[in-house]
């Protein structure tokens, strides 16, 4: 699915800008540097705003189209900021056959937003991801990076409540 682009204005702090510049400087002359820089940038900002992608392109000496091409290819790069509670359900093959489709529906119902969106108040963001590599725990969801495995839709309310 094509990624949604945020309409939220980009506001970075001087600390974030400094971190990004340090990240670019660290990888500048390393081969295959685009992926680790994009991952690092997403860690700094929670997502990959256009402005950040432009800074990365300029810093690494590649075209901005190339940066965007890679960032739009991998499902775990986001063009939307994350909510206070960032929820993701894995729709990879193993999770899906174990019923993650139902988790997916339940999460959209609870948050009131679709996959790839953030709620207008910034409280929730929700993503449907491809395989996150935890197939042994299928079906899997994550909340703010914490992994919850072998869950049922009925458990989701309780899990999310812990983060509110």
């Amino acid at each position: 699915m094509k990624k949604k682009m945020t309409t939220v204005a980009f506001n970075d702090t001087p600390e974030q800008a400094e971190q990004l510049n340090a990240l670019i400087a660290k990888y500048k002359n390393v081969e295959g540097n685009l992926m680790p820089v994009l991952q690092g940038a997403q860690d700094i900002y929670g997502y990959l705003p256009l402005e950040v992608q432009k800074t990365i392109a300029l810093g690494l000496g590649v075209s901005v189209s190339e940066v965007y091409g890679v960032a739009s290819f991998y499902s775990q790069f986001s063009f939307n900021p994350k909510g206070k509670v960032s929820i993701a359900v894995c729709l990879g093959t193993a999770c899906y056959v174990k019923g993650s489709g139902k988790l997916h529906e339940k999460c959209m119902e609870i948050t009131g937003i679709g996959a790839g969106d953030i709620s207008p108040d910034g409280r929730f963001s929700y993503d449907a991801t491809r395989c996150i590599g935890a197939c042994g725990l299928a079906p899997v969801m994550t909340v703010n990076g914490d992994v919850y495995g072998r869950i049922t839709p009925a458990e989701i309310d309780g899990i999310i409540a812990k983060y509110l």
Partner: peptide, 8 residues
């Protein structure tokens, strides 16, 4: 390089 393959 102003064009690229986008999305997947």
């Amino acid at each position: 390089g102003v064009i690229e393959a986008l999305n997947r």
